[in-house]
Write a protein that binds this DNA or RNA. Structure first.
Lengths: 125, 125
DNA sequence: CAGGATCCTATAAGATACTG
DNA sequence: CAGTATCTTATAGGATCCTG
């Protein structure tokens, strides 16, 4: 994500990634759509077109960029089949699969706090 | 974080926040330093200066910006004591505390995958 | 089908100096 | 002490058109 600077020093963030497990993890999944995409890919490998249909609100360009960034980060494996028309499949690596339970909890957090009203109602039942 | 546009429509991201628990949660903690700060504040309320000392690699400006954003987002409570010299304390709200276990798991994830070598060594023990 | 290329805007982040 | 203010750069995100 963040590249090395010309002067061979690190940005503040890079310095921290080197030192901190939490920052390292956070940086892997930072990016507006990454968690969403990873979360979707948990259910199995998908073609580019399937992902595009699933995330119609993400531009093709961003979808590509985020997927490639994750590939570089070792979270996603990209397989190109030498056919015509082309077929490309994306699947999670083991390290990405390990995020599974975390995303599930995140989603639960969202469900609980997104509409406080919802919570109030549930408590009344 | 993202503001309403002049034309009264939503950005792609905002549209998604409205529909999706996971995106809602992700957006609460998106920002280069938020998780780190939240994670630190878990151990109790802290003064601005303490946070600044703890995160010496974050500029004062970014620290302020992230804290204020989180305050607006309902994750952090900011208390100003009308004294001279001024004293300001930051503490987590209940909804932020609920992130606790998630951050812990994230950190564990980082610990496991940050240095694959480390893992190999551990397996040999 | 799965993108790449190009151009543009918005937002994040950082350096530095200053203040009630 | 706990910020603000100002300026600048870097990065993210998006619109649109093109292609092997």
């Amino acid at each position: 994500m963040a590249e090395r600077k010309k002067n061979s020093t690190y940005t503040r963030n890079e310095q921290c990634i080197i030192e901190c497990d939490l920052t390292y993890a956070v940086n892997k999944i930072n990016g507006r759509w990454k968690i969403l995409i990873l979360s979707k890919l948990e259910s199995g490998k998908m073609r580019f077109g399937e992902l595009r249909k699933e995330f119609s609100y993400i531009t093709e360009r961003m979808l590509t960029l985020q997927l490639r960034a994750m590939e570089k980060d070792g979270l996603v494996k990209r397989t190109v089949y030498p056919e015509i028309p082309p077929r490309v499949e994306y699947e999670l690596t083991e390290m990405a699969m390990a995020f599974g339970p975390i995303f599930k909890q995140l989603s639960e957090w969202g469900g609980k706090y997104r509409f406080p009203v919802k919570e109030d109602l549930e408590e009344k039942l």
